[in-house]
Structure formats: structure tokens, C-alpha cells
Write a protein that binds this DNA or RNA. Structure first.
Lengths: 126, 126
DNA sequence: GCTGGCGTTCACGTCGGCGTCAAGGTCTAC
DNA sequence: GTAGACCTTGACGCCGACGTGAACGCCAGC
């Protein structure tokens, strides 16, 4: 299939697929006329990339998964490099959640103090 | 005081202060020589901005707080607009935490499936 | 043969929050 | 009077993941 059809099937734009090509992430074959030619494996790969991006991975971090698929593995995450990136991402998410909890605490503290200040100003007892 | 001293006291760069000036966020007075002139209130404002940025606010979202201080209020968060932005940010944080929990669940699911796949491949019983 | 719908490459624009020059003006100390 | 430590504006660079448009090639159907 050509780039337009793959884009429709994978629900991305052709620009996105060309971008992946530029990055060497999804380097399809070329037809005699210079057109990019893709197959079902490429569709599978794009879907994998989009799933990972949806989980917060940078495109560069999806590379091990893509290569794992290209190596013939059923599951893109089953290669050592993929697993390492996966675990790293989990650690990042945990850190983010921790930081957000701290931030949330500080935000509510600020909200409470500001509300009290407004009540005093209005002469309202909290 | 001039821009360099304020930068030192607030632990930011002069570029940062000029950037705030460009945004109209911290428009100081000008001396006879064209130099920016700041006072203690400006220092307080910069510290407020940096604190808010540390809590994930965009610079534009700090504007209500800055204006609240300029209006003479003790607490930058005690004005209606500040409170609205504050509450909105709390909601954003809650959404982010929820999304990160979902992401974390999906990540561990992927990790589990990939590990099982590797064990089957190695002939190791999980 | 020509229109329309595909495809191609090149290359700049977007968003935020500055960093990092460059080219110059100002003020102080020696 | 001159070094150097401050200040000014202007303008491009950076990061990531594309959007957007220009200018062109290819091919099917009428």
C-alpha cells in the first residue's frame, strides 16, 4: 500500500509517516516511481508507535520497540532494550506522580491561605 | 536596584527579567540613563512568579497573581482571578495524576506480558 | 490531452521560556 | 583616558513532533 492508505488505516497524517521516515523509524521500501510502499507489518509498527506515544514515550524511545518488531518478535516489548526503556518510563511516571502530589499539596495550601485572607478581608469568619 | 542585583537576589538570570519585561509581566521603571530600576516589591513579585512556575504555572497564568500584588494585596492568590487560576491548576494536576495512573497501569501490563513472552521463549516457567 | 488525485522534496512556522551571541551605550575606578 | 563591569536592544537558536505551503512528478479516467 502507499502512504495515504497507511495513514488512513493507522489514523495518522501522511506528514507523520514522512516524519518517521526522516527519523529512520519507519523506512519503507520505494516503488519504481519513487513512492513509499508499505505492508501490514508497517501498519502494525505504526500502531505500536502511536500506542507508545500515547503512553508518553518520545519517538526516539520507541525505536527499540520498532527494531524488536523488525527482528521478527511477536511483542515489541519483549526485547532487552525495549524492557529497559519500559522500566525507565515506569520510573519516570512514578517520579511525575510524586512531584504532582507535592505540587497539589502546595496548591491546596495556597488556596486555603488565600481563602482565609479573603474571609478576613470580608469580615467573614471561616 | 538595577537588573543585575535583582537577578542575584531572586536567583534568576537578567535575561529572564528582560523576558518578563517583554511580556509586560514585570515592567519596571526606567532611570535617566535608560536602565531598568527595581524595588523590593519587584523582588517579591519575581519570587512569586518563580514559586508559581515551580508549581507548573505558565508565565501567562502568573499574571493575575502579579496584578494582585500590584494592587496592593498581601497575598498574590487572594484575588478572584488568582483563585480561579489556582483552582484550574488543581483540576489540571488531578487530571494529570489520573492519566498517569492509567498510563502506569498500561505500562506494567505491557511489562508483565513482555516478561511472560520472554519466559516462554527461554523455556522458563513464570 | 487534460483534469484531479495521488505522490515527492524542501523548508519555514508553531509552542514556551528563555540561552546566547553581537554591537553598542554608561558609569566607576585608577 | 581607559579598562572593565555594568547596562541596552535586536535577533537567532533550542527542544519535539509535526503543520503547512510551495513547486513539482506520476498516473487513471474522461
Amino acid at each position: 500500500m502507499r502512504i495515504g492508505e497507511l495513514a488512513r488505516l493507522a489514523d495518522v497524517t501522511t506528514r507523520t509517516l514522512r516524519h518517521y521516515d526522516e527519523l529512520g523509524l519507519l523506512t519503507g521500501r520505494r516503488g519504481a516511481n519513487g513512492y513509499r510502499v508499505y505492508d501490514d507489518a508497517d501498519l502494525r509498527t505504526v500502531r505500536e508507535i502511536r500506542m507508545l506515544v500515547g503512553l508518553g514515550f518520545a519517538l526516539e524511545d520507541t525505536r527499540p520497540f520498532v527494531e524488536c518488531l523488525r527482528a521478527g518478535h511477536e511483542r515489541a516489548a519483549s526485547c532487552p532494550d525495549s524492557l529497559a526503556v519500559l522500566r525507565r518510563r515506569i520510573a519516570e511516571v512514578d517520579d511525575s506522580v510524586d512531584r504532582l502530589h507535592e505540587v497539589r499539596g502546595e496548591l491546596t495550601r495556597q488556596l486555603g491561605e488565600a481563602s482565609r485572607a479573603r474571609c478576613e478581608f470580608s469580615g467573614i469568619d471561616p
